[in-house]
Amino acid sequence: MTKSELAQLLADSGCCVTRRHADRVVSTIFNSMGQALVDGDRIEIRGFGSFEVRSRPARKGRNPRTGQSVDISERKVPHFRAGKEIRKLINDAAGS
């Protein structure tokens, strides 16, 4: 499923949005979540999961093609942890 398919389902759900609004709603949700992470904020969506920013220390890497050593600077990566409810949903479906 892509972002636009998600928007289509949202519009079809009759929840309260036209197709055009649905695209904007989905974009707004993910943009605000992305911005929160850029601000270093943690995101917690009950039942779905949480996102947080973790730091990776600087390290020496190698260009795999030339074998040359390169310095890789310290960087931040987003990390997602699935919530209890969704972990259960995913596994119950697998068992059937």
């Binding site: 998600l6 949202l10 759900s13 949005v17 409810e85 949903l89 995913i90």
Partner: peptide
């Protein structure tokens, strides 16, 4: 309502 629906839709899709 709409935000709730988005996350519920994502959950059932992943399930």
């Amino acid at each position: 309502d709409v935000v709730e629906t988005v996350f519920e839709t994502m959950k059932s899709t992943l399930a």
